[in-house]
Design a binder for these strands. Structure first.
Lengths: 349, 349
DNA sequence: TTGTAAGCGTTATCAC
DNA sequence: GTGATAACGCTTACAA
């Protein structure tokens, strides 16, 4: 392992000062063009690489953004990460990524690591069982910008980026109502998490707006796993009278639900119409194709990093204090589109 | 923004030397228990956090592992990342992740950043259009361990972790042959990439072993995109005589291929049997469920990081010089399983 | 346009 | 057990 080349070595070789070398390498305007060229040439030839730690130590800025994510192996989260990485990289930032694996314990440890690593800013999507955000206190008190996305805390003081889950769920449910559904079940996720809580709200509001009474039996709280979709489907098949519409809080779960219903001879959408959430690629694989809410993950990642960097650069000091809400969109496919629209229902509206 | 607390502040407060504070915080055995306790208490109370940059600058070890990945938003790659993060985190390493977006240019830039950030080791899965690995030269010459996974260079000198693509493709193709297929098409990816090149080899070897002549027309090189599956299906429908088996180098593409064939009235697996590759979750969504090769992404990530850390810790200096090959497995589902096995074929064997 | 010198916060070395 | 001192390699006043 040969010795690392430093700016001192370059300086010695060119008989100039380390200061000038440093300035040259950083493209400081006040350095003579020739000198600069010589410096770059020498650096390349000698195999120099900047020591970012010395630089970060001196500059007190790390150009690093931390990300704490529930799971990396999720189709939604990996789109978000892709968007984040792209913007960060373009702006010269590194991303340190860690996953909480949906547990608060690991999230606490991750937050600590991020803090020790002096990230310039932190992006967080909360774990399944995170009940409070005390572990981010050091960031608040040190003034390190902290931005939550998707799974955000209830606390309104936090900057966050979300989609309007209430509105999206309202649209999804209203769509089912327009298709003539009267008995609509909602398969929800953990209701302690903001996104699922809000989707439930949107579902309820839509029913209220259509003067359809809310039945607590029609609200099934699940883990949204593949198995949960199967279980929920079985539960629905037992109901009497049988529901004629289902709004599921995620696509994966909706898919196994559909498969189970089909196996039992239920015709979709004619007997039961179904809407999912996320617009994952599986919506176009399942037969019938699944109506879903398009949820802009990649864009959310881009915006999260861009907001953070703008704040760090002092470009914007406003946006960081607010909640950014992204648009989402109902994408109608066969799973909810009945061939024959009920004119009676439509004329009622 | 209050001033950062350093070990000097703690030392001053406790009237001891910074050296002792440093030792205490690092749990050095030669420090008095009482002193240690006092140091920890003071550190907590004063809100001290270690400056990792100063430490890294001094120690010349970063506890950081770099990862360069073609795309973060891929189901396979995100499982790999998840496995990597888990092991790295447990061992006290940070992960710096960047994506090449399948271009060699970005990969070169990423490699440079990783080098400047003095990662202790680097994990790489090559971009689509990477033709050589000169940009990793600095790692070789500095003795920084470099480990390729999945998309590895042809150069045999590189340490790499792969699955046995030849064997896996051989199994897939042989399975189709056992199911009675005589005219088997292979939908391949970019043949410059090792994984696709090897899968093609496995396909050819299996045909050879069964004394089935290889037809170049039956080898379709594509981008493996969803559209590619549609296009390939159309091309196959034009062939005369019509093929009766398809081995596709990835599941996404296989799925759109199946959908297109079904639309044209082809019965699967009776008219055409199909096998994919990756065992993505969509294999269980498409109807009929897709036979595929189970490709252990999560495990690959775990092993990659574990090997690297073992090497860094001096535990193993052997494994890093070799190629690690993981097992993969053919998972048979309806898309290739013909209800009635052809006894004639079986008795021939 | 270039140089001098101080300091960022740790830790390794040597001494006691 | 503890302490003094000198690096680690870079940037930035300040000076020239």
């Amino acid at each position: 392992m040969d010795k690392e080349i430093t700016i001192y070595d370059i300086a010695r070789k060119l008989s100039i000062s380390p200061t000038t070398v440093s300035r040259g390498l950083n493209n400081h305007p006040a350095v003579n063009k020739n000198t600069k060229q010589k410096i770059f040439d020498a650096a390349n030839q000698m195999g120099y690489r900047s020591n970012t730690f010395a630089s970060k130590l001196r500059k007190q800025r790390t150009n690093t953004i931390g990300v704490i994510v529930p799971r990396l192996d999720s189709s939604f989260q990996s789109s978000v990460m892709a968007g984040m990485e792209k913007v960060a990289n373009e702006a010269g930032y590194n991303l340190i990524i860690s996953q909480s694996l949906e547990t608060a314990d690991k999230e606490v440890a991750n937050a600590r690591t991020m803090f020790e690593n002096r990230v310039d800013g932190l992006l967080v999507s909360l774990a399944y069982d995170t009940e409070n955000i005390d572990h981010f206190e050091p960031f608040f008190s040190k003034g390190i910008p902290l931005l939550f996305y998707d799974r955000v805390p209830e606390n309104k003081k936090c900057t966050s980026i979300v989609i309007n889950n209430i509105q999206a769920a309202h649209n999804a449910t209203s769509h089912l109502i327009e298709q003539g559904c009267k008995r609509i079940v909602h398969i929800s996720g953990n209701l302690k998490i903001n996104v699922y809580k809000d989707r439930l709200k949107g579902y309820k509001y839509a029913l209220m707006d259509a003067n359809i009474p809310i039945k607590e039996d029609y609200i099934i709280e699940t883990s949204l796993s593949e198995q949960a979709g199967i279980d929920a489907a079985k539960q629905i098949l037992q109901m009497n009278p049988r529901p004629d519409g289902i709004f599921v809080a995620n696509d994966n779960c909706a898919v196994t639900c559909i498969k189970t219903l089909k196996q039992e001879g239920v015709r979709i959408p004619d007997d039961i119409a179904i809407v999912g959430f996320n617009n994952d690629s599986i919506t176009r694989v399942i037969d019938p194709n699944l109506t879903s809410i398009d949820y802009p993950g990649y864009e959310m990642g881009e915006i999260a990093v861009r907001s953070l960097i703008n704040y760090l650069d002092g470009v914007s000091d406003v946006s960081i204090t607010n909640t950014i809400t992204l648009d989402s969109e109902l994408v109608v496919r066969e799973s909810s589109l009945r061939k024959v629209n009920q004119p009676t229902v439509l004329s009622k509206g």
